[in-house]
Amino acid sequence: MLRAATSALALMVTALSVAAPVRARSLLDYVGQCVPFARAASGIQIFGDAWTWWSQAEGRYARGHVPRPGAVIVFARTSRLPLGHVAVVSRVVEKRVVMLTHANWSRQNGERGHAEQDVTLYDVSDRNDWSDVKVWFRDNEGLGGSTYPVNGFIYGGTPARELTGVAPDYVGALIDAYVPDTKGR
Score class of each variant (00 low, 15 high):
residue 66 V to F: 13
residue 1 M to S: 11
residue 143 L to S: 08
residue 76 A to N: 07
residue 155 Y to D: 01
residue 147 T to N: 07
residue 58 E to R: 12
residue 73 I to A: 14
residue 62 A to Y: 12
residue 41 A to E: 00
residue 167 A to P: 00
residue 107 R to D: 05
residue 113 G to A: 02
residue 175 I to F: 06
residue 56 Q to I: 07
residue 165 G to M: 00
residue 29 D to A: 09
residue 112 R to D: 07
residue 140 N to W: 05
residue 72 V to C: 06
residue 77 R to I: 05
residue 59 G to F: 02
residue 88 V to C: 04
residue 156 G to W: 03
residue 175 I to R: 14
residue 13 V to L: 15
residue 47 F to R: 10
residue 63 R to F: 06
residue 17 S to D: 13
residue 105 W to K: 12
residue 109 N to T: 02
residue 18 V to Q: 10
residue 115 A to K: 01
residue 157 G to M: 02
residue 85 H to N: 08
residue 174 L to N: 08
residue 124 V to C: 10
residue 4 A to M: 15
residue 89 V to H: 00
residue 11 L to M: 14
residue 88 V to M: 03
residue 111 E to L: 11
residue 96 R to C: 10
residue 20 A to T: 14
residue 51 W to Y: 15
residue 3 R to W: 06
residue 128 N to D: 15
residue 142 G to P: 04
residue 142 G to S: 13
residue 151 N to H: 12
residue 108 Q to N: 15
residue 53 W to G: 00
residue 145 G to A: 08
residue 14 T to W: 15
residue 183 K to E: 12
residue 32 G to T: 08
residue 153 F to H: 04
residue 179 V to T: 11
residue 56 Q to V: 04
residue 44 I to N: 00
residue 179 V to G: 03
residue 43 G to N: 09
residue 69 P to L: 05
residue 11 L to D: 09
residue 97 V to I: 15
residue 7 S to V: 13
residue 139 D to Y: 12
residue 51 W to I: 11
residue 20 A to M: 12
residue 151 N to T: 01
residue 64 G to L: 02
residue 78 T to V: 11
residue 172 G to L: 02
residue 27 L to R: 05
residue 164 T to C: 05
residue 108 Q to E: 14
residue 137 F to K: 08
residue 42 S to E: 00
residue 63 R to C: 01
residue 50 A to W: 02
residue 51 W to V: 10
residue 56 Q to E: 15
residue 32 G to R: 09
residue 68 R to A: 12
residue 81 L to E: 14
residue 158 T to S: 15
residue 33 Q to T: 02
residue 158 T to F: 07
residue 107 R to L: 11
residue 180 P to E: 05
residue 98 V to T: 09
residue 181 D to V: 13
residue 124 V to F: 10
residue 94 E to Y: 07
residue 100 L to W: 00
residue 165 G to F: 00
residue 131 S to L: 10
residue 52 T to R: 06
residue 77 R to G: 00
residue 157 G to A: 06
residue 55 S to M: 12
residue 97 V to E: 05
residue 44 I to R: 00
residue 13 V to S: 11
residue 38 A to Q: 06
residue 135 V to L: 11
residue 25 R to E: 15
residue 121 L to G: 01
residue 45 Q to M: 13
residue 177 A to C: 03
residue 178 Y to R: 12
residue 106 S to M: 12
residue 59 G to A: 01
residue 87 A to F: 01
residue 85 H to P: 07
residue 84 G to L: 08
residue 58 E to P: 03
residue 139 D to H: 11
residue 58 E to H: 15
residue 134 K to N: 01
residue 26 S to W: 03
residue 8 A to L: 15
residue 110 G to P: 07
residue 146 S to P: 05
residue 132 D to N: 10
residue 50 A to I: 08
residue 45 Q to V: 09
